[in-house]
Simulated scan of single mutants.
Amino acid sequence: MKIELNKELNKRSIEEFARVMLEDTAQDTIKYNILTKGNKIIVKVFSERLNKETEFQYEKLGEKIEDQELTMSKIALLKLYDKKYPWGSLMGVRPTKVLRRLLINGCTYGEARNILKNFYLVSDEKVDLMEAVVKKELELLDKEHINIYIGIPFCPTKCKYCSFASYEINGGVGRFYADFVETLLKEIEIIGKFLKTYNKKISSLYFGGGTPSTLTEIDLEKVLQKLRGNIDLSELKEFTFEAGREDSLNIKKLEIMKKYGVDRISLNPQSFNIETLKRVNRRFD
């Protein structure tokens, strides 16, 4: 897929969206013309393969939408290819984050519903579900503690369905692995100082990815040791480590996790059908 933009946007993000949401764009050239007219953003998108142009325009929503021009550029692709999904243009996980952002930035539930339906293209059924979940989340939310998520953006292979920031450890981005680990260690120190300064307590700690167990035994111990040395985990209720790929696990890594207090692992085989695993690029039994 080739993308031509009339202004600087995150082209890789658009490509990733197309890879996951649109299976028939690989051989296409997509040309964008993005402009602002008064209080509206207008995205015109043209497909050379289809010889078709589509326009998507919407009022400026400010902080309610993260990077509105980029988001509209992705949504315009769905309109261009006439794709309709129950979740609209929402991709990945935790769609309720979108609704919570709208509410935090001053929307009523009615205003948020309008944006979810007409901007993000989410169906009524899924908007109802989002509202129900968010209302329950707000009811149960522990406001006295915060949670930490540590993302390791490397995997043995890239699953075909994956929309996360993750890269094959033996691919081009894998060359940054060592620098990533060193930067993560520094960031843990910074977060530790922040938590002490503002007297924040942690109730849960989650290692996700990517594939966290892609870390070598030495680096895994470095990271967990740095956490224990810089962050007060005395009020921790849950310490989770994703461990769903056997091709990156061994007994030594599990022993290191246990040594530093991991008390829950998240197993995500995705399928026990070997042919399915092969088709989605998970190369293990």
Rank of each mutant, 00 (worst) to 15 (best):
M21F: 12
L129M: 05
K135N: 05
P153D: 12
D24N: 15
T108I: 03
K117P: 06
Y149S: 12
N230W: 08
E16M: 15
N170I: 00
D247M: 01
A132H: 08
G171W: 06
V133H: 02
G106H: 03
L90F: 12
G38K: 13
I3N: 09
Q225K: 15
E23T: 13
R175Y: 07
C155M: 07
C107E: 11
E125K: 14
N147I: 00
C162M: 00
L102N: 06
E139C: 07
K136N: 14
E53T: 07
V20L: 09
L254F: 15
T211E: 03
K83S: 04
M1T: 08
K252C: 05
E16A: 14
K79R: 11
F180Y: 15
L236S: 00
T29A: 13
T211I: 06
I218S: 13
K201L: 01
K259L: 05
K31C: 01
V134R: 04
L205Y: 00
N268E: 11
I152C: 04
V43I: 14
T211A: 00
F272I: 14
S266T: 13
I265R: 02
T197P: 01
I188D: 00
N199V: 02
R101A: 04
D28K: 10
T36Y: 01
G208V: 02
R12I: 05
L205F: 03
K83P: 08
L9P: 05
Y149E: 10
I152N: 12
F272H: 11
T216G: 12
V280C: 10
Y120N: 07
G210K: 08
T25W: 03
D263T: 01
C107A: 07
I146M: 13
V280M: 09
M21S: 11
I218T: 14
I75L: 11
I14F: 02
P153Q: 07
V223T: 07
S234V: 02
R100Q: 10
S266D: 14
P86Y: 06
E255N: 06
S89W: 08
G110W: 04
N199R: 15
T36N: 15
T108C: 01
I265P: 05
L185V: 05
C162K: 09
K44E: 14
G261R: 03
Y260G: 00
Q27F: 10
K136R: 15
L5S: 02
P156S: 11
D142T: 12
D247E: 03
I169K: 14
D179L: 12
G92H: 05
E187Y: 10
E187I: 10
L227G: 01
A178R: 00
I190S: 05
N51T: 08
K83Q: 15
A18S: 12
K226V: 03
N118P: 03
K60F: 06
M130C: 14
E242D: 06
W87N: 02
D179S: 08
Y198T: 10
L185P: 01
T214L: 06
V181T: 05
E217T: 07
V98P: 07
M91H: 02
G229M: 09
E8I: 14
I42W: 08
E66A: 07
T25K: 05
A18M: 11
S73F: 09
